[in-house]
C-alpha cells in the first residue's frame, strides 16, 4: 500500500499524462479515422486508393515502429520542431485512425443503401450524405467495436514512455530507481487502467441504450 501512498504524486502526474495523451489521441483518431473512412467509400478513385493504402500500411506496422519513427527519425527530417508529447500524439493518432476507419467502414456497410439514395434524391451531395445521413447511423451500429479501439488506444499510450512522454507506463522506472517494490507498483498501475476504462465502458452502455431506443 505504501508503494502507492508514498508515490501518490508520481502516480497522479503519470496518470494525468496518460489521460491527456489518450484524450488528444482519441479525439484525433476519431476525426482522422472518419476522414479516411470517407475516402474509402468516396466515388473518387484516387481518394479510395489513398484510403486503402493508408489503412493497409498503417494497420500492418507495429505501433512501436511508428512511435520510434516519430521519436528518432522525425527530428532528422528537420521539418517542424515538435515536442515529444506532440509527436507521441501524432503517432498514436495515425496508428489508431487506421483501426477507427475500418470499424466505421463496417458500420457504413450496415446502413441500407436506400438511406443514401433517398439523401441523394433530395439533393444532398456526397459529403452531406456521408456526414448527415450515413455516418451518424454507421457510428450507432459500431459503438462496441469503436470502444474496443479506444480502449486499445488507452493502453497503447504506455508505449509512449519509450520516448520520454511521462505517463503511467513510465511509473515503474522511477519506482525501481527509488528502490520500491516494482511488482506492487505495477499492480497499482494495472488497477489505475481498470479505473480509466470504466468511464469508457459506461459511455458505451449509455450510447448503446440511448440509440437502441431511437431506432
Amino acid at each position: 500500500m505504501n508503494v502507492l501512498l508514498d508515490n501518490l504524486g508520481l502516480y497522479g502526474r503519470a496518470f494525468l499524462g496518460t489521460i491527456e495523451l489518450f484524450l488528444i489521441a482519441g479525439v484525433g483518431s476519431l476525426i482522422l479515422g472518419a476522414i479516411v473512412a470517407g475516402m474509402r467509400v468516396s466515388p473518387v478513385p484516387i481518394l479510395r486508393a489513398f484510403g486503402t493504402i493508408y489503412v493497409n500500411l498503417i494497420r500492418n506496422t507495429p505501433l512501436t515502429l511508428i512511435l520510434f519513427f516519430f521519436a528518432f527519425a522525425y527530428p532528422r527530417l528537420e521539418i517542424v520542431d515538435l515536442s515529444f508529447f506532440t509527436r507521441a500524439s501524432i503517432g498514436l493518432i495515425i496508428y489508431t485512425a487506421a483501426f477507427v476507419c475500418e470499424v466505421l467502414r463496417s458500420g457504413i456497410n450496415t446502413v441500407p443503401v436506400g438511406q443514401a439514395e433517398a439523401s441523394r434524391a433530395l439533393g444532398f451531395g456526397f459529403g452531406q450524405t456521408l456526414t448527415v445521413i450515413v455516418m451518424p447511423q454507421a457510428i450507432r451500429a459500431v459503438v462496441p467495436p469503436l470502444t474496443n479501439v479506444q480502449i486499445a488506444l488507452l493502453k497503447n499510450t504506455t508505449i509512449a514512455s519509450g520516448f520520454s512522454v511521462f505517463q503511467a507506463g513510465g511509473i515503474y522506472q522511477e519506482l525501481s530507481e527509488n528502490g520500491y517494490n516494482v511488482l506492487v507498483g505495477l499492480l497499482w498501475i494495472a488497477l489505475g487502467f481498470l479505473i480509466l476504462v470504466v468511464p469508457l465502458t459506461l459511455l458505451q452502455r449509455n450510447l448503446d441504450r440511448r440509440w437502441s431506443v431511437a431506432k
Partner: peptide
C-alpha cells in the same frame, strides 16, 4: 455528377418502394 446534379435532384421528388426515411 457533382453539384449541378444535386441541384437538379432537389427539384425532382422521389418516393421509394421501401420508404427510405432517415432512421435516425
Amino acid at each position: 455528377e457533382g453539384k449541378e446534379l444535386a441541384r437538379l435532384r432537389a427539384d425532382v421528388g422521389m418516393v421509394f418502394q421501401s420508404f427510405n426515411l432517415f432512421a435516425h
